[in-house]
Design a binder for these strands. Structure first.
Length: 301
DNA sequence: AAGTGCTGCAACCGCAGAATG
DNA sequence: ACATTCTGCGGTTGCAGCACT
């Protein structure tokens, strides 16, 4: 049953790092003939490697449409968000990051992002606050409470994000021009980017800044202040969304985004929490939903 | 300069499911 | 229906290069 490993020791096949000559042979062959059947490729290409090794080398390194090097902030955000939604399904995550391979994303997650989230007191596997965040004293209830609210807000935001990703995916499947997720509105132009996205971006930027500073370990005080700002603002937003009678944390939120945007945030976050799942809605409902969003976007105090 | 420990990443391994005969 | 092969995936390992002592 099953099958034996294709690269067992002593079968004459080479293992370990690829040489430039081997890379050249593999690239030349695939560019001329395509990869075809991987198991038969090494013989045809004159390589002393197993097909599996050739496939891996091509997919993870030699393919011409691969982007290498530092992950951008946007890519890092996307990875965090998709990991929260999809878990360790690296190939699925990679499908949303053009030109990045699942192996590269997996490595990046394991070597960089897991540590950063852990430093923030967030469990990298569940994306929820850990019971005892690293660096905090026992019984630091205020911090844990903030993190809980942060996680709740993040969860709601991810839900919205997931919906947008889904819409975006549908869009791609119908061969319409790909692009930003907000283009899923049937009649809106690409350049009509919603202002409410700025709020989410501001939130994400603050969070990432705190993350980066935390990671360097050079300026933990600033990171702490930043995190608290974000948490306070999230707490205000979240409370407002859940209970309209709760006092709105005007001070902290206006310090972050300015008074002019408060109604915008209120409206947007209310929409996020107003049962905007589109599964059971028809096209008209969806159209109205997006119109509401864009009305908010165009809100001018 | 030499030794040691750590980090990042390319490559490997084993498994599951699809495809094929 | 079953055995075998192929493909793709996620977890893990090994090593080169770097930082530190």
């Amino acid at each position: 049953m099953g099958r034996s490993p294709c690269c067992i020791d002593g079968n004459g096949l080479k293992r370990g790092p690829w040489t430039p000559q081997e890379d050249q042979k593999l690239m030349a062959y695939i560019q001329k003939h395509g990869h075809g059947s991987w198991p038969s490729l090494p013989d045809k290409a004159g390589l002393q490697r197993c097909g599996k090794s050739c496939r891996l080398r091509w997919i993870n390194y030699l393919r011409p449409d691969i982007k290498r090097g530092q992950f951008t902030l946007q890519e890092q955000k996307t990875i965090i968000q998709l990991h929260a939604l999809l878990g360790n399904r690296w190939s699925a995550i990679a499908s949303y990051l053009p030109k990045r391979t699942d192996n590269e994303i997996k490595n990046y997650w394991n070597t960089h992002m897991k540590k950063r989230l852990a430093m923030m007191g967030i469990d990298p596997s569940t994306h929820r606050p850990m019971a005892a965040p690293i660096g905090s004293a026992n019984g630091d209830h205020k911090k844990v409470s903030n993190l809980t609210h942060m996680a709740q807000w993040e969860s709601a935001r991810l839900e919205a994000e997931a919906r947008l990703v889904k819409e975006s995916s549908k869009q791609r499947q119908t061969n319409q021009p790909a692009g930003l997720q907000w283009r899923c509105h049937p009649t809106r132009r690409v350049d009509e980017l919603p202002r409410c996205l700025d709020i989410l971006k501001a939130w994400q930027r603050l969070q990432l800044e705190a993350l980066v500073i935390d990671d360097n370990g050079n300026n933990n005080n600033i990171a702490s202040v930043r995190s608290n700002e974000v948490n306070d603002c999230n707490e205000g937003l979240f409370t407002k969304c859940l209970d309209i009678d709760q006092p709105w944390n005007m001070g902290t939120c206006s310090s972050m985004v300015g008074n002019d945007d408060l109604n915008l945030i209120q409206g947007f976050s209310n929409l996020l929490f107003s049962g905007c799942e589109s599964e059971d809605r028809n096209d008209d409902d969806n159209m109205n939903y997006w119109d509401d969003i864009f009305d908010l976007v165009n809100y001018e105090p």
